[in-house]
């Protein structure tokens, strides 16, 4: 475990908790894409199926449980408890266009043609594009609440920190995983314009609004 990976996991955890708290405290999921949250729940489910069969460390198992629990709780809050505040008019990105290609690619390009490995690969490909419905929603509404932009910044930073973690592991252990690396690069690239807006606007106290 190196510092980049630890900070990456921390950033990911902060993002997930920020979102859950935002919805719970404001009792509203306005500006949040339920579809992205469904995709994240699928990502964690398909990636952590080895939760009980494959013990790596207390840290690893407990973080997986937290991620899965929080992601399902978030989906429940959006589509269950606070569905009256769900912005279904704008949250219209066709997630089947993300699910099907990820599934096909997972069958074609993977490290090992076993069920667990193909599901892991599917979760990696899906995670790289899972934020698209959320970014699409922000672009359609033209703005995002400040707390939502903090959520997106933490979420985007997590995979950026993982890229640094893989760089570190390559030079220190000669370890690399092209599937995770290339997906992580795509995932991080999708946040670039958001990162620019966040740093140039939100950090100066302005609201995150996209140029109309």
């Amino acid at each position: 475990m190196n510092v980049f990976r630890f900070l990456g996991d921390l950033s990911h955890l902060v993002a997930i908790v920020i979102l859950l708290l935002k919805i719970w405290k404001t009792r509203s999921c306005s500006g949040i894409s339920g579809r992205s949250q469904i995709l994240f729940a699928i990502v964690f489910t398909t990636r952590y199926l080895d939760l009980f069969s494959n013990f790596i460390s207390v840290y690893n198992t407990s973080m997986k449980i937290v991620y899965i629990t929080c992601s399902y709780a978030t989906v429940y809050l959006i589509y269950g408890k606070f569905k009256a505040t769900y912005d279904f008019n704008h949250d219209t990105f066709r997630i089947e266009f993300l699910l099907v290609p990820s599934a096909i690619l997972a069958f074609l390009v993977n490290h090992d043609f076993s069920p667990l490995e193909i599901l892991w690969t599917f979760s990696i490909y899906l995670e790289s594009v899972a934020i698209l419905p959320q970014l699409f929603l922000v672009s359609k509404t033209g703005e995002a609440e400040t707390i939502t932009s903090h959520y997106l910044f933490a979420l985007g930073s997590y995979r950026l920190l993982y890229l640094l973690n893989w760089l570190w592991r390559y030079f220190s252990q000669g370890f690399y995983d092209l599937i995770a690396l290339l997906s992580g690069i795509l995932q991080t690239v999708l946040y670039c314009d958001f990162f620019y807006l966040y740093i140039s606007k939100v950090l100066k106290g302005k609201k995150l609004s996209l140029p109309a």
């Binding site: 790596i56 690893n60 490290h111 667990l116």
Partner: peptide
């Protein structure tokens, strides 16, 4: 499981 199939990252 052999090394590479074992994913130790989250």
């Amino acid at each position: 499981a052999d090394g590479d199939a074992l994913h130790d990252e989250l």
